[in-house]
């Protein structure tokens, strides 16, 4: 089997160890004998047509504007990739831009890709950033508990067309009010969880891999891996999240 992973704007959206998500997907596929190709897409470059899974990371506010422009240029391509069953997975700043719109702390309105029915607003630099550990229960069947770390000023609200990715047990989530974290719809996923999220939540990583492979190979069985190190890191993160610090 083959899998093409596409990393969008790695030199802009590389905040916070999010390349760990790419490493996790790549290594977990390779350990199952899947041939993995990673394509890095920089600003102004077209998206590859053969991508099975598109990763969008988080960035700083200034980069958000650049990325919003770049993503708008690729909206059509990203939309048709998702319609053909490719997975789109976005973290933090990338997640915000997958929605309809993002209003920056300065009040600038950035239009998003519109792949997720969410809207984000940054209430301004003088408001509290939502920072800290997160433990949440994932709504994706079979994934269970998610652990990660959030750090965002923007507040995201879900429309009727998006499902929350998780319900928060520790932490703020999308907006610190409604107890939801992230959003998903079909094969498009957005989350505020850094950490990075996929290495420590291997069942979620495997879910995304299976979904990405489905486009070409139908339902596939992924052999189970020795995940003791992953589970230990997950447990350590969850335990630290429950200690006030």
């Amino acid at each position: 089997m083959e899998l093409v992973l596409v990393h969008l704007f790695p030199d802009l959206l590389n905040l916070y160890g999010d390349r760990g998500n790419l490493i996790a997907l790549r290594e977990r596929a390779r350990r199952r004998g899947i041939r993995v190709t990673v394509r890095q897409v920089r600003l102004e470059e077209p998206l590859p047509r053969d991508g099975d899974l598109f990763l969008v990371g988080g960035g700083e506010d200034r980069q958000q504007t650049l990325v919003a422009q770049a993503l708008r240029g690729s909206t059509g391509q990203l939309r048709s990739a998702a319609q053909s069953g490719a997975v789109v997975f976005a973290v933090c700043g990338g997640y915000q831009l997958l929605g309809h719109a993002y209003r920056t702390a300065e009040g600038q309105e950035l239009s998003g890709v519109g792949l997720l029915d969410v809207v984000t607003e940054h209430p301004g630099h003088n408001t509290r950033r939502l920072v800290g550990d997160v433990v949440a229960t994932c709504t994706v069947p079979g994934v269970g508990e998610l652990v990660g770390f959030e750090n965002h000023g923007g507040r995201t609200r879900l429309g009727p067309g998006a499902r929350p990715l998780a319900t928060v047990r520790v932490g703020f989530g999308n907006n610190g009010e409604d107890g939801t974290e992230g959003a998903w719809c079909g094969t498009v996923f957005g989350t505020y969880l850094h950490g990075p999220v996929l290495p420590k939540n291997p069942r979620f990583a495997d879910y995304l891999l299976r979904l990405a492979l489905r486009r070409r190979y139908g339902d596939v069985h992924l052999q189970s891996l020795d995940d003791r190190a992953e589970e230990a890191a997950h447990a350590a993160a969850a335990a630290r999240a429950r200690v006030p610090r």
Binding site: G17, G20, N151, G195, P196, K200, A233, A237
Partner: peptide, 30 residues
């Protein structure tokens, strides 16, 4: 408080070293 920066460190460059690593601290598992 967030050890995710470890994923931006180029540990890959360490791998041809013939050494033993002892991982410690509150986030040894990470």
């Amino acid at each position: 408080k967030d050890p995710s920066w470890l994923w931006d460190v180029d540990f890959e460059g360490l791998c041809d070293l013939e050494a033993h690593v002892t991982a410690s601290g509150l986030r040894a598992e990470e």
